[in-house]
Structures are given as structure tokens and as C-alpha cells.
Design a protein around this nucleic acid. Structure first.
Lengths: 205, 205
DNA sequence: GCGTCGACATCACAACTGTTGTGTTCGTGG
DNA sequence: CCACGAACACAACAGTTGTGATGTCGACGC
């Protein structure tokens, strides 16, 4: 059952939703379409389960990454890591989100589900900003609700465009610049330094 | 020919791209599929022409709106009007953009076209910021290239979510808040005042 | 040992889809 | 008045898709 949604997720990422057929999903997972029609009522059921599972995985991962940050510097670094992932699998997920949004435009019920998990993710971003403000690192004239929403929508737009243009440097620069305008210059600089040090020590080739 | 792309555009906005068939487009435009196969080589040809025409229309409209602004206040107001349109037809166009982006993910050649027209639109945003800076209204520590890109991606993300949630107030508030953080509080306030005055005098019901 | 029930495979089917070949109309230049 | 080609309509085609009916098999309770 979980194998089916995983297979669906991967086929959607590879071929896009429009070109995703139940037969493709079955072939990807190593089973037949009979299994799909046995465990799921519809094709919609399969697709929705795949999308829902993927976004649940993402929020869980993001929560884990943000949770283990001890200092504000680590928190900002984690936020940057989560919003502009370096992992190629995480980057490929942007296609999933894009297809998911478009699909949600046709499925009102599913759109509400999306909105609920998006609210969770926005709340996570907001609590990051709250911790920054509590430490006095943030400009004081900012509406945190709006800023969290802005940051969230900015990340959406950036990831979408990055997936289209295959340029993953620019989004990172944009999020960093945005955080700097909020007053987090030092934290961004620290995250950037940590990133270069880490990638510098990891570069084996 | 133009009627065909217009019909395609409208069907995509109504039903989404995946559910858009050549027969639907023909019925919408009042002709048959024979016309489509006569003027276009492929279905891809029809879709791409519809997308390209729509984005050409948008940039032309945005250019016109921004051009006729005399003062900085009017310029900022025009930018707000273009990025968060009140017109329901313009709002419905967000579905087109969403479908277009997803489609571009499967069509590399078309993706480059998209990126070209997006660069034009980014340049328009950038020149708005430049005029603001030339007048000394902008914070001085800002990288205008990055800020134009940020604003552009923010608008993408906001419009997408607004289309999904049918909430068109929040995007406007976000763009305003963002422009305020750039130092344009007075201009945003002026635009807001003008908007309420205008809508107040126009409200006939 | 036997029935039964869930987990799948297999296969057939009806519905659509994009595409193409073959008319048919009609404006226009000679 | 006549050809002629562009602009379209119409119909048929081949391929695919989601779906559902039917068959197979193994686990498990009695």
C-alpha cells in the first residue's frame, strides 16, 4: 500500500502527472493494476494518497531539521537548508509540488487538505521568526504573520522557477537576501560560512 | 487563428490543461478539429501558441499600466495593481500560469521561451525599483537584481496560492508588507488610500 | 481437511484521444 | 466563366486509458 504511493510519487516526479498512468505506477512498483484497483477506489485515490504522503513526509523532515537547531544561527541555517535543499531528491520534489498545486485546482476537496498542511508549514516558519525576534535579531516593525506568509510564498515561487530553469543557486541567494532585509545579516553570514566550510571539507573531487 | 488560441486559453482556464481536448477547444471556438489540424501541426502547437499568446498579452498589459505612471506613488500603485489584479479575468489567468509552468517542465524548448518572457517581466519590476531608488525612496543596502527576482517569485507564489484558496486579499497585503520592508511605506500608504477612495466611489451596489 | 476471505494477477471492454484522409465551400486571379 | 488553392467540415482510425469482472493462490479458523 505504501509501496504503491511511493511508486506513484516517483512516476509523477519522472513523467509528470498528465503522463502518469496506472499501468506505469504498477510497473514502477513491480505489481499490476489489479493491486491498485483493489486497494484504492479510484485513480484519484492513488494520486491523492501519493501527494498527501509526500507532503506529510516533507513537513516531518522540515520539522526534524528545524527542531535540532540549538542556537539562532543554526536555526536560520536549518531554515535555509530546508527551503533550498542541496539534495537532488529533495529538489526533484518540486515537480511534485507543482503538479500537486495544479491538481488541487481541479479537486476542491484535496485543495483544502493542501491548505491544511501548508498552514502547518507556515506555522513552522513563523515560529522560526518568533524565536529570532525573541532574541532581538529581527527588525521590530515587522508583522510576523505576514512575513511568514511572504517567506513561504517566496519559497514556493523560487522552488518552482528553480525546477524549471535548473538553477538552484539563485533561489538560495534570494532567500538569503530576503532574510537580510529582515535584519538577519549576521545569521545568514554565519550560515553561509558554515555551508562553505562544510562543502569545502566535503569536496573530494 | 487567433480565435483558436483564444478558445484554447479559455478552455484551459475553465477545465485545466489535462482535461483540455482538441474537440473542447473546437467547440469553444465554434469550429471543428479540422481547423486546428489545418493551422497547427500538433496539439502541442496549439497549447504552446495559447500559452505564448497569453504571456505576451500579460507583459504588454503590465507594460502599459506601468508606463502611464507619472509619479513614484502612481508607479508603486500600478505595480500593486498589476501584481494583484482586481479584475476577475486577470485573476483567473493564474490558472493559466500554473498550468503553463507545469507544462514547461515537460517541454524544454517551451521552457526557454517562458524564461525569456519572464526575464522581460523581471526587468520591468527592476526598473520600477530603480526609479524608486533614483528618487531616494528605497533603502540603500538592497541588491536591486536580487530584489526584483524576489518580488517576481513572491508574486508567483502568492498568485498561485490565491488561485487555489480563492483568497485575493492576503496576497495584496503580502506585497504591500514586502514593499514596506524595502522602505516604500509612504508610497504603499498612498496607493492604499487611492485604492479605497476609488473603490469607495465606484461601489454602486 | 475444508471453506472462506483477502491479496493479488489477468483480461476484456467501453470510452476517449490525437491524428489523418477525404470531401466541400468559397473567395480570387486570369 | 473557370480553375485553383486556402479554409474548413466530417468521418474513420489506431492507440491508450481507467475500470471492473473473473480467476488464482495462500493463510487461517473450525
Amino acid at each position: 500500500m505504501a509501496a504503491a504511493t511511493d511508486a506513484a510519487r516517483q512516476v509523477i516526479i519522472r513523467n509528470g502527472l498528465e503522463a502518469t498512468t496506472l499501468r506505469d505506477i504498477a510497473r514502477e512498483g513491480g505489481f499490476t493494476t489489479g493491486l491498485l484497483s483493489h486497494h484504492f477506489a479510484d485513480k484519484r485515490d492513488v494520486i491523492v494518497a501519493a501527494f498527501a504522503g509526500a507532503s506529510r513526509d516533507f513537513t516531518a523532515w522540515a520539522h526534524r531539521e528545524l527542531e535540532q537547531a540549538q542556537t539562532i544561527e543554526e536555526l536560520v541555517a536549518a531554515l535555509l537548508r530546508v527551503s533550498c535543499p542541496a539534495d537532488s531528491d529533495r529538489r526533484a520534489e518540486w515537480r511534485l509540488w507543482a503538479e500537486m498545486w495544479v491538481y488541487a485546482g481541479r479537486d476542491h476537496e484535496f485543495a483544502q487538505e493542501i491548505e491544511a498542511t501548508d498552514a502547518v508549514w507556515t506555522q513552522m516558519v513563523r515560529s522560526v521568526l518568533e524565536r529570532c525576534r525573541a532574541d532581538g535579531r529581527l527588525r521590530e516593525d515587522l508583522d510576523l504573520d505576514l512575513q511568514a506568509e511572504i517567506l513561504n510564498r517566496l519559497i514556493d515561487g523560487l522552488g518552482l522557477r528553480a525546477w524549471l530553469s535548473h538553477d538552484w543557486e539563485s533561489p538560495r541567494a534570494c532567500v538569503e537576501e530576503y532574510l537580510c532585509t529582515l535584519g538577519l545579516q549576521h545569521e545568514v553570514a554565519a550560515a553561509r560560512a558554515e555551508g562553505t566550510v562544510r562543502s569545502g571539507s566535503e569536496q573530494g573531487e
